[in-house]
Design a protein around this nucleic acid. Structure first.
Lengths: 211, 211
DNA sequence: ATTTTTTTGCACTGGTCAGTGCAGTAGTCG
DNA sequence: CGACTACTGCACTGACCAGTGCAAAAAAAT
């Protein structure tokens, strides 16, 4: 056997041999929090064993070791982001054509996510972006962010392509920056609130000027 | 002797004992590039020996080891940033009251710094910001950035404090984000140019609306 | 010249880490 | 039941790394 099929999702396929004693989704979830807390580099296999309750050799066999588990974690995390934080941008909000409202809802979720008392500061992807831990996840995150903002601005009736692109780009980089600030300030709600409010105010001005 | 005076600058004080065989400024400069290239964590003492040409025991005695050398590097780097990249914001440009011009000049320098063929991607401080390598340097960097932008906007005649604060905050986070993108895209000039241009365009709109 | 002071080069160390080898275990299949 | 297959727990390893101890070196002071 050359390659090991990574434990994708939890599937009780009629497996031969000893069955898994863990739930793959739970393990990945635990890994997300472990990597979240300390970053890819600083998280040791021991930390992951503690967090998941699964032995390193099993983590290696089933997920491909530290790197493989991290990639499973970022992949799942991106899915969570897509259906959570980014949902207003990507799916369109309750109000069909209110692109500005979608952006404001997105920013509101961003603030909640970064300042919630139970939250770990920052974003799993952005936290390790500079370290280059998972370049593909980083790129997907940036694409999702900027494309979602562009689409929302289009929905908002922003028809000048230049201005739409400018503002999507600026908001996107600003979101990355706020994530970074969240990480460095250890989730300081005052600081993050101030910065997200700045974005919200500015988007509000765009909306007001558009009417 | 309890504490070692770190080799601050290059001073040929009439020292007793064997004189230093290195130039402290050159060593710090070399260290900046070494840390720039791989980040604080991934840079080993061996890398620093190679980059500086100085033995690890000397680095330890004179700079306080890896951490001390890193802090010397970030300190010097911040000074360089203050007198280079940030100069238009902090000192006021050639035109006395042209705050918008100062911001545009700053953004132009930002692009040059991030895309120059000889440059290392990103910014020494921002690259390691998420990892928390030097929280004080990170905070000083953010303060310098946001205070400079706020001052420039004030010079530009932006008198609404709310709008001034909003736009300084948004630009500041956006600058952090662009640095991050520069790092992750390995200094992709097209990508960075696009994002910095977005900021430049938007600032240009502020200026146009202010007249 | 000898003493004193500081730097320098080298070899070493204790600790940590990701990954592995293997024997044992827990199921399914015929 | 017995063969087969896959997962698990444990102990181990080779590599790497930041920091240290120490003797030699290079100057100044006396």
């Amino acid at each position: 056997m050359v390659q090991k099929a990574s434990a994708t999702s939890n599937s009780a396929s009629k497996g031969r041999g000893r069955p898994r004693q863990f739930d793959a989704d739970q393990v990945i979830n635990a890994a997300i929090w472990a990597f979240f807390a300390k970053g890819f580099e600083a998280t040791t296999l021991g930390d992951l064993e503690d967090a998941t309750g699964v032995d390193r050799s099993t983590l290696y066999n089933s997920f491909g070791g530290k790197r493989g588990l991290y990639e499973s974690a970022t992949s799942t995390y991106l899915d969570l982001a897509r259906t959570g934080l980014f949902a207003p941008l990507l799916g369109g909000g309750p109000d069909e054509n209110d692109g500005y409202g979608d952006i404001l809802e997105f920013l509101d979720r961003l603030r909640s996510g970064l300042t919630s008392a139970t939250a770990i500061p920052g974003c799993l992807i952005v936290n390790d972006m500079a370290a280059g831990a998972d370049p593909r996840a980083a790129q997907r995150y940036r694409e999702m962010l900027e494309e979602g903002l562009t689409a929302a601005l289009a929905r908002a009736g922003e028809n000048d392509p230049q201005r739409r692109s400018d503002r999507a780009g600026m908001l996107a980089t600003s979101v990355l920056g706020v994530n970074l600030v969240s990480k460095t300030t250890d989730g300081d709600a005052r600081e993050i609130g101030r910065l997200v409010d700045a974005m919200i105010d500015e988007v509000g001005r765009w909306r007001a000027a558009a009417t």
